[in-house]
Design a protein around this nucleic acid. Structure first.
Lengths: 351, 351
DNA sequence: TATTAGCACTCGGAGAGAGTGAGTGCTAAC
DNA sequence: GTTAGCACTCACTCTCTCCGAGTGCTAATA
């Protein structure tokens, strides 16, 4: 499949993509012939470009313009640069160092990650808060707030925390809540959130009698509420710097779509299990992103995947750099978070 | 001061502002003479406009264009429409109804408020999360998370909740934390957050001996951490619809400034005590907002001011509508939040 | 046979100039 | 004090031309 193209065609295609990524302007044969890495006359290059156009790797905005890469070309390009994309040690060190300055709150680390991602790449970044889906419970508190509501605070094995408001069935007193709390801590440690209901229901009968069912329902809603997806978006305005968005109405619809939030479900959730995904143009489900590429990578805490992050840019984005930055960022974030959240035997964060 | 202008001048100025708010185009004398509420020939109007220009209420982009209102004109305009700005009962009902659909979490209500604000006005809205500065404590939990850290969860008298991570001095066990927790609940109920340290310090000695000071320090940081300002921003992309921002670089710098977040300190904090503030153009401290107007209003829970919200638009914004919407939104939000958060004697939220 | 030079052709974009129309200010008449 | 009339201004739009970067084809070259 890859070897549909001979070496020379590959070089030319590669040069075109490189140039187009840099300038956003159609690339002509003369421009290419001036490059050091291509020792061919414009005429020869034109012939090759003609072939590449026929093969679907290049497109021509109009007769008298140069060529621009097609999605197919980006696809090929990406699969070629993928391996060698890597940051210098200095850059990696910079990222790592910046991330470690913010180790008091998980939320701050995530924010800083998003900021750096968009700061370094100049594109838009999205970073998901670590989710608790697969986390095992360590501690649950039910704190009465008003007569009809209580705050549920969950601490997981991995040290992540979250809280949510529950509406308490009438007839349940704060004494009851306290007992339920104690019960949960006693019996649920080590279970996953989703197991709360089935494990706890029988036990509840002793404590709250006939109200057991409504209490159980309340606790079920907990596992949904507490795991609501949350994310940080930074650098949306960066997109306005690219000629692709010099048309205000395009910029407008991109930003609106971003604010609507539906993007994130597609962008972040789909990569379950896969380390790194690159979606180019129409490979994105969302038609609003048909002129964008999205690169997603997941991050881990203690080996378990707990969230992902993505960079969104024009299809003409600097794939090599973005992939390299994301790889590095994922590693750094994973290790910083693991250091923060896991109280490992050697005493937590190792500096 | 107000009566610098006779009635006729006022009418003309008013008509110009109205028209300019609608069209964003300089207003000419012929356009005005066609309006029903102005029964004057273009020539007469021109004379009046000439006077108004001299008085600093109007500006002329170039000789052969109409006039546009100056900031001074907006100022006058605003002080005139201020009182009569009011929504119809239908609109008010709509707002109220929408807000009451989201009464499970304070955060959701705030988000919905921001969404509606920008949805109705078509400008950018900022809504601050309720702060806890003056709230009185009802309950504090210290939940051990890892060996070096604990989660502090605070519930206030008004039912607002928040949590933050604290790093725990070495040598403090989870037993200690539990005791401190109990102590705080016993002794601190009804105090403000800022009182935590001085009230608690003596008592701590009994529990943790020589580590009392470091524990006290930890608890002090709590009052800062737990009250970090947070806000919802919605509708930034709306600004791109206005000709003021058809220049991409202007749009870019506005959005960047918005993301930077410094805006909020100025926009939201300053209105302490004052019900409603209108800042027009350069009246904003931030030079980035010199072409914007910002209208801020505060909201309350149980009579006490706990946060504010703002609408940002071009100086040419529809002040009357925005003021009306903000007034209504502030009332609705205040009452919805009060209903949610206060367990009033009659049983909370009244529908 | 593969490469290159040469040439005619295409077409978007920049720039010049003319025409248009919304607006003004001034003056003189009502 | 108000208005009609008129000359003048000036941003915009439209058209036209020119320019140049780019192509494809053909014929010459290595």
């Amino acid at each position: 499949m890859t070897q549909l193209l001979d070496v020379r065609k590959m070089n030319i295609l590669r040069a075109i993509v490189d140039d187009y990524i840099l300038t956003a302007a159609p690339v002509g044969s003369r421009t290419l012939s001036k490059r050091e890495d291509i020792e061919l006359s414009p005429a020869t290059i034109r012939n090759e470009m003609s072939d590449l156009t026929e093969l679907g790797f290049l497109e021509q905005p109009h007769t008298s313009a140069g060529r621009i890469p097609s999605e197919k070309a980006y696809r090929l390009y990406v699969s070629n640069i993928m391996d060698r994309a890597r940051l210098t040690d200095d850059e990696a060190e910079y990222i790592r160092a910046h991330l470690e300055r913010r180790v008091s709150e998980v939320g701050d680390v995530i924010k800083e990650t998003a900021r750096m991602l968009s700061g370094i790449t100049k594109y838009t970044s999205i970073v998901q808060m670590p989710h608790l889906k697969n986390a095992r419970l360590k501690h649950i508190s039910l704190i009465p707030v008003t007569t009809g509501s209580a705050l549920a605070v969950v601490v997981t094995n991995s040290g992540a925390t979250n809280s949510t408001m529950l509406s308490v069935p009438s007839g349940i007193t704060s004494d009851h809540l306290e007992k339920i709390s104690a019960l949960m801590n006693e019996r649920l440690a080590g279970y996953k959130l989703v197991d709360v209901q089935k494990t706890l229901l029988p036990l509840l009968r002793e404590e709250v009698g006939e109200q057991a069912d409504s209490v159980a329902a309340m606790l079920t809603s907990l596992s949904d509420d507490i795991d609501r997806q949350d994310y940080e978006v930074v650098g949306a305005a960066n997109m306005l710097d690219y000629p692709e968005y010099s048309d205000v109405s395009k910029a407008r619809s991109f930003l609106t779509e971003l604010e609507r939030g539906e993007i994130f479900k597609e962008v972040l959730s789909d990569g379950s299990g896969v380390e790194l995904t690159v979606r180019i143009g129409t490979e994105n489900d969302n038609p609003e992103l048909k002129d964008c590429s999205v690169i997603t990578i997941c991050y881990r805490v203690g080996g378990e995947q707990v969230g992902s992050m993505a960079v969104i840019g024009p299809t003409r984005m600097d794939y090599e750099k973005v992939v390299a930055v994301l790889k590095c960022m994922s590693e750094s974030l994973s290790s910083v978070l693991s250091g923060m959240l896991l109280s490992s035997p050697d005493g937590g964060r190792n500096e």
